[in-house]
Design a protein around this nucleic acid. Structure first.
Lengths: 123, 123, 123, 123
DNA sequence: GTGGTCTAGACCACA
DNA sequence: GTGGTCTAGACCACA
């Protein structure tokens, strides 16, 4: 795990978990690393991990059972919402960057269509 | 100016200048900050700035006159190439991220078309 | 290895490698000294060596594999260009010096013809 | 005045004076800088200058009149010899360098003829 | 003032 | 081990 300086680390931790859930690498019921373990393996402050875990708990991504650990607890609907939310963010960033490079909406549409069709049709 | 940890600082400096050239904020003939000035205002080491400036000189983005300063010297063709290169990078990042969120090419195409049409038709 | 004060050290390093490539002492694929080794054997700073190596990489004289070392990667065409470029420089220096000794073009021509024929016909 | 590290400085001083004599910038009877003045203006050690002057005296390029200074005292024949000697050195260096770049005698002859005729016919 | 070169040395990333 | 980046700072060259 590496972290940027562009965003608070706790948010980056949350993003990381969200992505794993979306990709199905983490499913409801799975146990995740303890806060202490996570902090150690990522060499970051335990308080930072705690904040990430707490916020994930608040939005019901995970559940903590005292004495047992933290477990994924995400609903299908929640997962879908997260997916849309993250997609939207990615999309907006993309459009913003393309426009700041001077591309018009039409040009962006053409490029994306071309590029996606071309070399990335292997999904 | 501040810098990520995702990329070397000297490359980020180069990106910054490339973007300004693409947007027309910097044109051939314009004097850019002296190495010392840039270093001071960005609070980085002058050697780092020099590396960025030197690499920009190597690819003929700028021209350096000793004792006088550094000047933009980018050709139309070069500018177009940079624009395409940067667009390609942004595009690939975008597609990569969308796919890692589990979207198929078709879905990406639809989203981008919808989104671009929708709220961003003001260019 | 020792270095003049007439030219930057990093350029002299580049010249040295160019010559070796031209003479066939270094061929594409050969590993050259690591930056640290070179610096040590020449008793110069590793950063200076790195600059030379990097500039050679920029013009595709060598290729660098991180963690493995630096390797000659010069094309036939490149080699030929370098040879011509270096010859031109040597030639111009020669003519300049001869003229500053007061010799005319004709005199230079005669001398060179004589001298080359005379004692150096052993190639 | 700048000096190399390729040769003892006193020899470089001598070369400098020889060249000036050959070009006619210094003629028999001209007073040259005192050793002290020379050392000061070139920021080198007076002993070094002294050695150069003494050697020039030995081969009768200059003459020192006690209390008056040092004066050029070169004969026509001497001048001619020096000119030939220096030319020969330049020539040999040139041929050596061209051969070490892999050029044959014939190629050198052709290049020199071409180059001299071409852009340098203005003497 | 401007950029150019070099040293010394820290720390990181890849293998 | 390899190269890559960055800082700190000296000193030089051009104007």
């Amino acid at each position: 795990m590496d972290f940027d300086t562009t965003q608070p680390i706790y948010k980056q931790i949350m993003e990381e978990f969200k992505k794993k859930m979306i990709r199905g690498e983490l499913k409801t019921g799975d146990k995740i690393l303890s806060q202490r373990e996570y902090a150690q393996h990522a060499t970051i402050n335990p308080n930072t991990v705690q904040r990430a875990y707490r916020e994930m708990e608040n939005i019901q991504l995970v559940e903590t059972l005292r004495g047992q650990g933290t477990f994924v607890s995400v609903s299908e609907k929640m997962l879908d919402d997260i997916k849309k939310e993250m997609a939207k963010k990615v999309l907006n960033t993309f459009i913003f960057e393309m426009k700041s490079l001077g591309f018009s909406s039409d040009e962006i549409c053409k490029m994306i269509t071309g590029q996606v069709k071309e070399g990335n049709d292997n999904d």
